[in-house]
Simulated assay, not measured.
Amino acid sequence: MAKLILNRVAKDFGTGRAAVSNLSIDVREGGFLALLGPSGCGKTTVLRMIAGFETPTDGSLHLGERLLADASQSLPPERRNMAMVFQSYALWPHMSVADNVGYPLKVRGVSGEAYRRKVGEALATVRLEAYAERRPADLSGGQRQRVALARCLVTSPDVVLLDEPLANLDRHLKQEMEETFREFHQRSGATMVYVTHDQSEAMALATDVAVMSEGQLLQVAPPDEIYARPEGRVVGGLIGRGAIVSLRSPDGDVRQLDWAAVEPLFSGEGGSASRADVLVRQEDVVLGGEGIAATVESVLYEGERYAARLRLADGQILRAFSRSKLAVGDDVRAMIRGAWRL
């Protein structure tokens, strides 16, 4: 196994704007990288360049010391020792589960005891040994996705690529499959690159999250770091469910703000005349006390709590959670335990 390296990779389809521009990422051996961003941000194009389905127009891709592609040459997909899992499962309906899993081995000429052993090990990894002789039509959506995982594992790939594999599943099944993916990663030890537009999936599964927008890499970091310390409005808006407010800029280069630091900025009594974007997470807003005056603009009951949208006197928005029932139009006070200057 080796490190996957993307060095200043770009892809231009000649449409007037590059699909991917100057992107550099090192995916650690055995890591789980999530490429996160809205539709059209270039994340699937990056995945296709890693797989060998697209050739970069600039930069290079390496797997360890081996060059996979640059602007002048590209190793074909079948010589990269990678496997890909799609949204659609892409299973052969007329084949049994075992035959679907073993198909890549047959293509490589593996047969006999080695074939049966590898198929059995792959099915055991995804806990489908008992379903070996069934057809895909007899399985649930989650079981079919696990067959697709076993099929990509059977050839012991260096890298597993996943193109929004949970997009077609309902909420309950998606949560179940997230656990399957975590277990699959731990048991297989494979390096994984996972494309998604769902930040909750990225945060739950990945060891590192790379946030993209309009073909650019904005930030790459472990999930807890990218949540706590996002860089810029786009990342701050994509990760979590906070609100970004414009305030007087705090003095110095401090970025982590507590109530004592942030209250004067809201009141206009502290900071400098210049403005700063400040991210305030819902969980850091406490209703009550001697906080900032706000009016409840909307309320959504989430079962264990209420999620409220609050409008401040200057028209800016905060978001908050409340255990107590709120009504639209209520006047409340909001204290902010912590905030992050972007």
Rank of each mutant, 00 (worst) to 15 (best):
K3V: 14
N7G: 09
N7F: 01
A10R: 10
K11A: 10
F13M: 11
T15R: 15
R17W: 06
A19D: 05
S21Y: 04
L23P: 01
S24P: 03
V27Q: 11
R28I: 08
E29L: 07
F32H: 00
A34R: 12
G37R: 15
P38G: 05
C41W: 00
K43L: 12
T44I: 06
T44S: 15
I50T: 03
E54Q: 13
E54W: 08
L61A: 14
G64N: 09
E65W: 04
A69C: 06
N81C: 02
M82Q: 12
V85M: 00
S88I: 04
P93H: 08
S96Q: 11
A98N: 09
N100A: 04
Y103N: 00
L105C: 06
L105Q: 04
G109T: 08
A114M: 03
Y115T: 02
R116D: 05
V119N: 10
A122D: 07
E129D: 09
A130I: 02
R134Y: 08
R135K: 14
R135E: 02
V147H: 01
L149T: 03
A150I: 06
S156Q: 12
P157T: 07
P165F: 00
L166K: 01
L166F: 01
N168F: 01
L169E: 01
L169K: 04
F181L: 15
F184C: 07
H197E: 05
S200K: 07
S200A: 13
E201V: 08
A204N: 02
L205H: 05
A210P: 05
S213P: 02
S213E: 14
E214W: 02
Q216G: 02
P223Y: 07
D224T: 07
E225K: 14
E225S: 15
I226Y: 00
Y227W: 13
A228G: 02
R229W: 03
V234T: 14
R241G: 11
A243V: 00
L247T: 02
G252D: 12
D253Q: 14
D253G: 14
R255Q: 09
R255H: 05
D258I: 03
D258C: 10
V262L: 15
P264L: 03
S272P: 01
A273E: 14
S274A: 15
S274K: 14
S274M: 09
S274Q: 13
R275E: 13
A276F: 02
D277R: 11
L279Y: 08
V280Q: 09
V286E: 12
G288T: 06
G289M: 10
E290I: 05
E290L: 11
I292C: 13
T295R: 12
E297I: 00
L300F: 12
E302T: 08
E302P: 00
R305G: 08
A307W: 05
L310D: 04
L312D: 06
I317T: 12
F321R: 10
R323D: 15
S324V: 00
K325E: 14
A327K: 11
A327H: 13
D330Y: 01
R333K: 15
M335S: 15
R337Y: 03
R337D: 10
